[in-house]
C-alpha cells in the first residue's frame, strides 16, 4: 500500500530495513515516511533506536539492506558509487562528535565542504579556487568564527567546533541537511545557538533539515514535524504538538520523565 502523494515529496523512504551483519542487529525495520521540501524534520528515539543508522542510509554512508529511498525524484538506492558522490555534495551533514580533522585549521576544515565540486587532481593538490576561499571565510563569518579561521580546530570549544561543522556543510550549498544529534555534546545554551543556525538555514536558505535530537523540548521548539523511532520501528509521525504525555511514554518507555532544555 504505497501511494506517492500528488505533489511529489522531496524525500521518500520506503520499506527501509537495515540489518548489521556483525551481531545480526536489526537496526531499522520496514521504515516508510516522506519529507516535503522546506520541512524541519526531527527524529527522536532512545539511544540505539536507529536514528544514526537512518540518517546515514539517506546519504548511503551506510548501505540499506532493503527498501528504497527517492531524493528529489531520483532513486538514491540505485545509484552507482560515482553518481552517489554527485548526489552527496548536495546533502550536508553535521555530527554529534563534529568529525573535524583536529590537526587542521578551521578554514581547512571548511574548505573540504567543496571537495565534491572540485576535480580530483585539484583536490589532491589542495588547489582550491579563490572564490572557494572567499566563500569559506564568508561561511565562517556567518557562524561568527571569522576571527578563528586560522586556528587549529583542536583549540576550539565544542560549540565553536560544531559551528565549523555547520560552515563546512554551508560550503556544499546543500538542499538537504542531515544533522545527527548535533547538540548532544553541548551545554543547553550552546545547543540553542547551534539549533538557531540550523533553523536559519532552514528558513532563510530553504534547506530541508532532518535532525535527530535527544531532547523532546528541543524537538518541539525547532521541528515542524517529528518522527519517533523505537527499536528501529516508526512509532510516531506527526506535528510536535501531537506528542502528549501518553505518546511520550510510548516512545521513551514507562519510566521516562521529560527533561526540559531551556
Amino acid at each position: 500500500m504505497v501511494c506517492l502523494p500528488m505533489a511529489n515529496p522531496y524525500l521518500v523512504v520506503e520499506h527501509l530495513t537495515k540489518v548489521y551483519e556483525r551481531g545480526q542487529v536489526l537496526a531499522l525495520r520496514d521504515l516508510s515516511f516522506t519529507v516535503d521540501k522546506g520541512e524541519f524534520l526531527v527524529v527522536i528515539g532512545l539511544s540505539g533506536s536507529g536514528k544514526s543508522t537512518l540518517l546515514r542510509c539517506i546519504n548511503r554512508l551506510i548501505e540499506p539492506t532493503k527498501g528504497k529511498i527517492w531524493l528529489d525524484g531520483g532513486e538514491v538506492t540505485r545509484l552507482s558509487q560515482a553518481r552517489m558522490r554527485r548526489v552527496r555534495r548536495k546533502i550536508g551533514m553535521i555530527f554529534q562528535q563534529f568529525n573535524l580533522v583536529d590537526r587542521s585549521t578551521a578554514i581547512a576544515n571548511v574548505l573540504t565542504g567543496r571537495l565534491g565540486y572540485l576535480p580530483g587532481w585539484r583536490a589532491l593538490l589542495g588547489w582550491f579556487p579563490e572564490e572557494d576561499r572567499e566563500k569559506a571565510l564568508a561561511s565562517l563569518e556567518r557562524v561568527g568564527l571569522r576571527d578563528k579561521a586560522y586556528v587549529r580546530v583542536d583549540q576550539l570549544s565544542g560549540g565553536q567546533r560544531q559551528r565549523v561543522g555547520i560552515a563546512r556543510a554551508l560550503m556544499q550549498e546543500p538542499e538537504l541537511l542531515l544533522a545527527d544529534e548535533p547538540v548532544s555534546a553541548l551545554d543547553p545554551a550552546t545547543s540553542h545557538s547551534i539549533m538557531q543556525y540550523l533553523e536559519q538555514m532552514n528558513k532563510e536558505d530553504g534547506v530541508t533539515v532532518i535532525a535527530s535530537l535527544h531532547f523532546l523540548s528541543l524537538a518541539r521548539r525547532y521541528g515542524t514535524r517529528i518522527i519517533a523511532l523505537k527499536d528501529g520501528q516508526l512509532v510516531f509521525d506527526g506535528s510536535p504538538q501531537a506528542i502528549d504525555n501518553v505518546k511520550f511514554k510510548e516512545i521513551y518507555g514507562e519510566d521516562a520523565e521529560e527533561v526540559e532544555v531551556r
Binding site: 552527496r88 548536495k90 546533502i91 550536508g92 551533514m93 573540504t112 567543496r114 565534491g116 565540486y117 563546512r168
Partner: peptide
C-alpha cells in the same frame, strides 16, 4: 573519514 565522504569527495 565519514564526514569527508559525506561531502561527496572521492
Amino acid at each position: 573519514i565519514e564526514a569527508i565522504t559525506a561531502t561527496g569527495a572521492g
